[in-house]
Design a protein around this nucleic acid. Structure first.
Lengths: 208, 208
DNA sequence: GGGGTCATGTAATAGGTTACATGATTCT
DNA sequence: AGAATCATGTAACCTATTACATGACCCC
């Protein structure tokens, strides 16, 4: 069902999206993407952009429209979205919104192997993580307020709101997890610590 | 700061983790990973495993221990974790637990470009997404109960609990988002719909 | 004893990232 | 006038996924 897309890199989605509005040349796309802050949501780097443009041409989703030269600068090739590209774009968007994908975040990998670390250490690390999560929340909140302050409608910031919601949920999870480890009666600490020949962690919060 | 790791694929983390316990040959790793259900948390496929093993050898984190042959089966090479590998494993784990990473989920990409679809269509798609999210929650819950039922301690299922927490948070977010679009007075629908020359969506729930 | 599927890997291809290259503009 | 930065791309290198290969065991 998945990944029969001719071009799978999400950067291609952004490219097609911008070309919906008007033809552009790659460098313009690059600048626009960066200025518009899309790089926060879609992994972006210079080289990949040219690669993706090439793939889109080969797939027939965009086409070279003209090659212009301005002053003594190198030639710039301007690309336009084709009809098939416009269709691919809408279809892909629909799929992304309707179907949740199974993804593989790094934290999940670590969690699945977490028993390999000693519980007391894990608690320390998780507390530090909580601080980092808070920082990210503050930063994201700042991006939102900042952009709203510039008069951008909130609709164009839903992805940041989503990020925020996920950060909050993760924080809550981590807090619960810590509790589960250190809880004096029912905590996993003692059983877990046995794997490691280590003293069970206590409930004091003095550390870190 | 990131990705100076000699081997970056998370599959390598799982490999090192298993080799912590005893030396194994690749096929055994492959089977163990699949049976143990790690494939739900770490992207896995046959080819990548051999690649990763090769990279780990080159980096000095694992070493060929012996080459055995059993009956007329092809030779199997058994690998063991080196000291440097053991250290890399713990260090990597610590990093993963302490530092949240900026990831790029597919849904975020779609959200960042969501204004390109008509609001009424988006509402329909989001409602379908909610159904899918519910399915995934049910499935994850089943995996957890099932595994617990086999006597596995809950500690080894935290990653599934995490997944569950994220699914719930996402569902909540999507519900709020729908409300923001269709809310009779303050909804984004009308403004949004203007981009599309389309009638503003109403608040009736009859559709879908 | 021929047809699956298990066991075990290698090789070919495609995808993505980093490094390199080069003329123009701007700053000091 | 030399240094830094912008503008624009190409090429080399890694990584990851898919396809291919091959002998053993198992079922009917």
């Amino acid at each position: 069902m998945a990944e029969r897309r001719k071009v799978g890199n999400l950067l291609a989605l952004a490219v097609m999206s911008y070309l919906t509005q008007r033809p552009m040349h790659p460098y313009e796309l690059s600048r626009t993407l960066r200025e518009h802050g899309d790089a926060r949501s879609i992994k972006f780097n210079h080289g990949s952009l040219y690669m993706v443009v090439g793939q889109l041409v080969k797939a027939g989703f965009i086409a070279e429209q003209e090659t212009t030269r301005e002053g003594q600068r190198p030639e710039r090739t301007v690309y336009a979205l084709t009809d098939s590209g416009r269709q691919e774009f809408r279809d892909w968007m629909r799929e992304l919104v309707e179907y949740p994908r199974h993804e593989y975040p790094h934290f999940v990998a670590a969690l699945s192997l977490i028993a390999a670390l000693a519980p007391s250490e894990v608690v320390t690390l998780l507390r530090r993580r909580l601080d980092r999560l808070t920082e990210q929340r503050v930063e994201t909140r700042a991006v939102i307020d900042d952009t709203l302050g510039q008069g951008v409608p909130a609709l164009f910031l839903v992805e940041e709101e989503y990020r925020l919601a996920m950060l909050e949920a993760e924080s809550a999870f981590v807090e619960r997890f810590i509790e589960q480890i250190v809880h004096p009666e029912t905590g996993w600490g003692p059983m877990w610590a046995e794997f490691h020949g280590e003293p069970a962690p206590t409930d004091e919060r003095e550390q870190s």
